[in-house]
């Protein structure tokens, strides 16, 4: 293993890491937003919309991200919608993640005792006040383990971005191996950079989980 080679590759990997994180976290943010809205629609059984959300989650959970990306990147232009690789990656990840987050938050909502809804209602709260002050904080707390697992899963899924020529970590490693054949160095760097991106998330997630293990508050 040639350390000098590895050091010379560092700036390329660093740029790739920034790009991967940028696209990855944007995708996660979209996913969380979709998940919050989608889970509320399903939980409150909003007419029609609930079927659309169910169809959406089934579609995106049961097809590979790669296929979804190909659709957005290669098929949408045929009907006149062209997007850049970065936008495609962001939305592909966001839509896939949205389906997972919807399921995660929905189970969080389902775990909240009915009496919590009723006592919020009996205090005269509107639906949105109840959701914002009473239901959401509890649902998010009990969804934390699933949420953390989803975030790690989504950030790892960014590795398929290389197929739509987005210069993420995976793309950079493959590219460098193709050009200079320093396979071991490139792969070791790849592992290190993925760990740099994901270990903090994992550790932070564990800490959060431990604090909220019983979905209880205080103490």
């Amino acid at each position: 293993m040639n350390l000098d080679v590895m050091i010379s590759y560092l700036p390329l990997y660093r740029d790739a890491l920034f790009l991967t994180m940028r696209v990855g976290w944007k995708g996660v943010a979209i996913a969380v937003l979709i998940g919050l809205i989608g889970s509320a629609i399903i939980h409150f059984e909003i007419p029609i919309a609930r079927y659309i959300v169910s169809a959406y989650t089934q579609l995106f959970r049961n097809t590979p991200l790669l296929v979804q990306l190909f659709f957005i990147y290669f098929a949408l232009p045929k009907i006149g919608i062209c997007v850049s690789p970065e936008v495609c990656g962001t939305w592909g990840l966001g839509l896939l993640g949205g389906a997972y987050m919807t399921e995660t938050f929905r189970s969080g909502l389902d775990n909240i005792p009915k009496i919590q809804f009723e006592s919020a209602e009996s205090l005269g709260m509107s639906r949105s006040q109840m959701f914002r002050y009473v239901i959401l904080p509890q649902a998010v707390a009990s969804s934390i383990p699933g949420l953390v697992a989803n975030v790690i899963f989504l950030l790892k899924e960014t590795s398929v971005f290389s197929t739509i020529s987005l210069m993420d970590l995976m793309f950079t490693a493959k590219d460098l191996i193709g050009m200079y054949a320093k396979t071991i160095e490139c792969l070791v760097l790849l592992v290190i950079f993925y760990l740099i991106m994901l270990l903090p998330v994992s550790v932070l997630g564990d800490l959060l989980e431990r604090r909220l293990r019983h979905a209880e508050f205080g103490d």
């Binding site: 006592s119 009996s122 509107s126 904080p137």
Partner: peptide, 20 residues
């Protein structure tokens, strides 16, 4: 909503909000 503000209710099960 305005009716519920005028008619208060306390339930059998502990219904306090656990996160507050």
């Amino acid at each position: 909503s305005s009716m519920r503000q005028k008619i208060g209710m306390v339930f059998q099960s502990y219904d306090l909000f656990p996160h507050k």
